[in-house]
Design a protein around this nucleic acid. Structure first.
Lengths: 349, 349
DNA sequence: CTGAAAGCGCTAACAC
DNA sequence: GTGTTAGCGCTTTCAG
């Protein structure tokens, strides 16, 4: 239990460079009003001694913590990890977030918090008090949870909300779900499909509604009815199976599913009925996690730019910490990637 | 740029409970020599005020940081994330690591550092100085990099090395690669295969040698020669293709590949030659990332218990911080999971 | 068993 | 421009 202390501190640098602590501090924080020669001298000492500021001490001194907290839903994330279904949402967040943080001298810390309201405020407060991050990134369903956004606002901590446009403060980032859903539907309509079913995501995700909206928009645009072609899902494989069965019963020749697992389930259901994808039925999925590309056939999917949107979120947070202002919602567009699960309507249909 | 300070500090708790700062500190740190009634009173105040200690301040005061740093190879990790091939190594590390950290009031921070020697010491020192973790978890190839282990030892920071048994201090954790490789080979031999080829991993991973050893051991045990059946790979798909071609040319009827990507490549190569898996050729892979289960057929694979081994690593680190001693290497055994890519030797072979 | 003092490494505020 | 002072929230001495 050796009590380790910082080996080389600002004091050593100051002594080595023959200046005051404060001057070193100024150099570290790139403050103005330091003569260039002083600055060089200090930086030489820093490099020579291999000095790196202690983020704990910086925080104690009242400055930034240089920490960005990425928050995800505990229950869902752990379930995904345990299932090992190949979702790489978290990996992509880390990819975009960590790299952009690193570019600005920040670090990203990844944490899980429950959505369940008993814990949520306590847990979040604990994470904030313990870590004291300069900014927080929220993903659905946290990003539109008023308990969370409210707490963050009261605490005066900058935050970015991915996948939410509801009021509640913070920066809003989206991935153009409505347009993407419309594109997916148009892609199918363009191949001659007229009975294009939709499997929705759970209500507690704002993007579920956006995706429905895009589909509805497209169906109307090409003059198709949507009567019994909208079904409910909850992002689970099982719900995808049920919804697909319903749509096939209703005579759908194409299906847009609000996530990969439900799309995979839909393909399986089509085959269970002795029919073929894309020969008889076309399927499009949302998210485009890796499993979709290893599937046979690879699924046509809406690819979500998670890494990019997380990177943008980090950028907004850091810009904010630097006093730059930006309130307009940011949209990083998802892309439809046509693959083997969609094809022309078969004339026999 | 509001300069946020801790909203409720140890002072508030002390005032509320009518005790000294020190007593509160003792309660927080579960130190002995506090009367139960005092303790209860303090804990009541803590709960009431929702107090959570600032980890920065704790660190400043000279105690632990309650941070465990998980270090991975930057280049390889980022490449994996970019490729989106569905590897969930990182996810499984987070799963095992974060949950176990949380159980003990710790937090896990995930970082990437380059293996390239120019940066490595600087980068690692920077991360250590900035974060001041109580423990570090190393994965291959970092876990047997003397630059890293040496630096950590000199700094007096506890560390755990996953996938390495080389000397160099720290706790050592392995996943029984040799035994797993032997089991995989025996599984094939048990199905009648006699020409069982092996695709090795890169030399700079200790586990590459262990896996070769297990295969060699099994081949000898059942009296089979290994002459031209050992090929080199580097964990990449391309290298798997080349190695598989070589093995098939040599008349192998079964292949053990040192990771999933190379196994997938092997299956593809078999098919490219108009032959079938497992009808003509059996394939076993190492790692068992999700993609393997979504493949057709699902691959028989050695499933690596990443989550469990990371959890154990965290446990060792925390136990060490608590003054408990433990030097023996820990082995969390990988399991062979038989699936559809292996079958009996076809008589026509 | 509990309290008061000093100090961790750094920054903000104020002087010079 | 640069140095000095005080203090962040906590833990470690060391008294009582």
């Amino acid at each position: 239990m050796a009590r380790r202390r910082q080996s080389v501190t600002i004091k050593h640098v100051a002594a080595d460079a023959g200046v005051s602590l404060q001057t070193v501090s100024r150099v570290i924080n790139k403050e103005p009003n330091v003569r260039p020669e002083m600055m060089e001298r200090v930086q030489a000492s820093i490099a020579k001694l291999g000095y790196v500021p202690s983020i704990a001490a910086q925080r104690m001194g009242g400055s930034r913590s240089y920490l960005i907290l990425a928050l995800n839903d505990r229950e869902r994330t752990i379930a995904d990890w345990r299932k090992r279904e190949g979702s790489d949402w978290i990996d992509q967040m880390l990819l975009g977030g960590m790299l952009t943080c690193a570019e600005h001298g920040y670090r990203m810390i990844f944490e899980l918090v429950d959505t369940h309201s008993d814990h949520i405020e306590r847990e979040l407060s604990a994470a904030l008090a313990a870590l004291q991050p300069d900014g927080v990134i929220l993903t659905p369903p946290h990003s539109h949870n008023p308990l969370i956004t409210g707490l963050l606002e009261r605490a005066g901590i900058a935050f970015a909300r991915i996948g939410s446009l509801k009021p509640g403060g913070g920066f809003r980032l989206t991935m153009g779900d409505e347009v993407a859903s419309r594109d997916a539907t148009m892609h199918l309509a363009g191949m001659g499909h007229r009975r294009i079913g939709f499997i929705a995501g759970p209500d507690d995700y704002e993007l579920s509604a956006w995706r429905i909206e895009g589909w509805r928009w497209a169906m109307e645009a090409v003059g198709l009815g949507i009567d019994d072609l909208l079904t409910a899902g909850d992002f689970s494989y099982a719900s995808g199976t049920a919804a697909a069965a319903q749509l096939l019963d209703a005579g759908a020749t194409a299906i847009v599913a609000s996530n990969d697992q439900m799309a995979l389930a839909a393909v399986a259901e089509v085959r269970r009925r002795g029919r073929d994808v894309p020969g008889d039925i076309s399927v499009v999925s949302f998210d485009d996690t890796p499993v979709v590309r290893f599937h046979h056939p690879p699924l046509t999917a809406v690819s979500q730019p998670i890494a990019e949107v997380t990177s943008r979120a980090v950028g907004l947070l850091i810009a904010d910490a630097n006093g730059e202002t930006n309130i307009a919602p940011v949209e990083v567009k998802a892309q439809l990637v046509p693959r083997g699960s969609t094809g022309p309507l078969r004339s026999s249909n």
